[in-house]
Amino acid sequence: MGKIHVVTDSGSDLSMEVRQRLAINVVPLTVQFGSDIYKDGEEISVSEFYAKLKAESEMPSTCQPSPADFVAMYEAIAQPGDTIISVHLSSKMSGTYQSAVLASTMLDSDIQVKVVDSKSASMGLGLVAATAAQGVQAGKDLDEILADVQQAVDQLQVYFVVDTLEYLKKNGRIGLASALVGTMLNIKPILTLVDGEVAPFEKIRGKAKALKRVRELVNQFKEKFPDKSVRAALSHAVSPDEAAQIQEALAKILPVDGEVLMGEIGPTIGVHTGPGVVALFLYAV
């Protein structure tokens, strides 16, 4: 019986530390400013990216990894007889999942690839990938791990606050939240993901109030599942203090040994959301 490997993409915003600790392999998407193309995390860092985003007038774009990129990764990490769980960005937002599915059919050797649509992004995807990796480290068998992964995909709740809807709109990722565009007031919407697509959750005036509301949502979540354990992750785009506010609320509801996976939103997601984003991902097990 071969080994089980976990692969995800750079849309997961997993930190280097977590990737190494949980042995998660990351295939980068590329981000393009004008004619300059960079591999996320390899050729451009998070801080370089936001500095560039601020400086450049032109909106950057992202490009999914090619099937060949995935084939290269799969063949590099796995031996014949091994299995790969490849977890990716919501197929409604990116073609990355499709690329991985294609790659899985292109392998010559006897490597089994289970491609999973996380229906999420950023640390939501990160959390799904971590669930798989933690299952591998705990010595669970493939079916158990896939069941855990499916549970994470199905149960994951996402709430995120953006400074502006501009980036989501310009990059065509605004989904059902398009109705919020064009409001004249300084509205900080709390957004969510519904079936892998951006959707409005609540409209709130002012960021402080929006963050306060997210903290309330954390408490409401625990009230809803008083007997269950909560798994959670947070990510932010150049907003560590604001993320810390949410982390504080999370700390109160998590089990003692529970970990909040923290991630910085990198170029792959940052292109579509801009700076100032705080995102919460949680589900009950």
């Binding site: 709109k169 310009k170 065509g172 990722r173 605004i174 989904g175 398009s178 565009v181 064009g182």
Partner: peptide, 15 residues
């Protein structure tokens, strides 16, 4: 408004 909508590639149905 429609000029804005045209920029929203990928999700025309929502707009």
């Amino acid at each position: 408004y429609s000029a804005n909508v045209d920029n929203v590639v990928g999700f025309p149905q929502a707009a």
